[in-house]
Computed example of a mutant assay.
Amino acid sequence: MANRRTDERGDAVPGAPRRNAGSVPEPALTVRAASGQTKGVVLLLHGGRSRSYNRVRAGNLSPARMVPVARHLQRAGGRHGLAVWSLRNSVRGWNGEDMSPLQDARWALGRIRQEHPGVPVYLVGHSMGGLTAVCAADDPQVDGVVALAPWLSGETPAARVAGRKVLIVHGTEDRLTSPAESLKFARRAAPETESLQYVSLKGAGHFMFRRLAVWNALTTGFVLRAFSEKTGFPVPDDPVLGRLIPSSASSIPVVL
């Protein structure tokens, strides 16, 4: 059964009905639960291809690449009430007007809304998942977006992130998605957001292998800070994030 919700050990958890019937590929969710009451949810969105209707499998590199991010977020935020949900898309491609990953993200956000109505949601996406996060940010529960090496362009709708907190991180050596387009989007979207920060990581490429600790520190620190600001829960500010991006920073870009 492809469409199942699982806990952090990979065991099936009841309560995730099938979205489609028949042989159509389906998305899947892995849930790393918060300690105690869930006060916020992080939804992780992985990368993919421009066009492909091949099924995404658990062993594919794109969803596997998000596992360390999920673990880092859980270790830092789980005790403060943050649950971490990882979405595995139904198919590998964006697929033009079908926008397949966006459909899957909307489905996952619907599941979050059913289980945790009213809690703030933070979208964290890599590559194509960064585009998905930006496009899904208009969901009413979304408070913030982290886009890591995102696949953005002049056609990416900036209005979707209006009123949201946004962090975009892009490596200077990325050859698969464009740092220049990410920066253009950041400048275009900034006036409409609650806050927008763009970080240019010197020497980092697309797959986040280089400077991994910085990618993780920025992502987790940003989410925890936004969660604390939204809810008032006393989450300590990440000292690493504080050194890299002071809470008052508004310049675009910040170069690290």
Score class of each variant (00 low, 15 high):
residue 56 V to H: 02
residue 122 Y to L: 04
residue 113 R to F: 00
residue 24 V to E: 08
residue 179 P to D: 07
residue 15 G to Q: 11
residue 226 A to I: 07
residue 98 D to E: 10
residue 179 P to N: 08
residue 250 S to G: 15
residue 65 R to M: 14
residue 255 V to D: 14
residue 153 S to W: 11
residue 14 P to A: 15
residue 42 V to K: 01
residue 209 F to V: 15
residue 5 R to P: 00
residue 173 E to I: 00
residue 252 I to Y: 01
residue 166 V to T: 07
residue 81 G to V: 03
residue 86 S to F: 09
residue 3 N to Q: 15
residue 161 V to Y: 03
residue 38 T to Q: 05
residue 217 A to K: 03
residue 108 A to Q: 07
residue 152 L to R: 02
residue 49 R to P: 00
residue 207 F to G: 09
residue 94 W to G: 01
residue 136 A to F: 11
residue 67 V to S: 06
residue 232 G to R: 07
residue 71 R to Y: 12
residue 214 V to R: 08
residue 88 R to Q: 14
residue 229 E to K: 14
residue 126 H to C: 04
residue 142 V to E: 00
residue 229 E to T: 13
residue 107 W to H: 04
residue 183 L to P: 04
residue 70 A to I: 06
residue 52 S to P: 05
residue 53 Y to S: 10
residue 133 A to Q: 05
residue 157 P to F: 14
residue 14 P to W: 10
residue 237 D to A: 15
residue 178 S to R: 06
residue 201 L to C: 09
residue 150 P to E: 12
residue 129 G to N: 05
residue 130 G to F: 03
residue 170 H to P: 00
residue 155 E to M: 09
residue 88 R to V: 11
residue 217 A to S: 12
residue 37 Q to R: 12
residue 95 N to L: 06
residue 22 G to S: 12
residue 180 A to P: 04
residue 54 N to V: 10
residue 196 L to C: 03
residue 107 W to S: 02
residue 97 E to V: 15
residue 23 S to E: 14
residue 32 R to S: 10
residue 187 R to K: 15
residue 79 R to C: 05
residue 104 D to H: 03
residue 3 N to D: 14
residue 129 G to V: 04
residue 204 A to R: 02
residue 121 V to L: 08
residue 22 G to F: 12
residue 216 N to A: 12
residue 242 G to V: 09
residue 246 P to M: 11
residue 65 R to I: 11
residue 84 V to L: 01
residue 148 L to H: 02
residue 155 E to G: 11
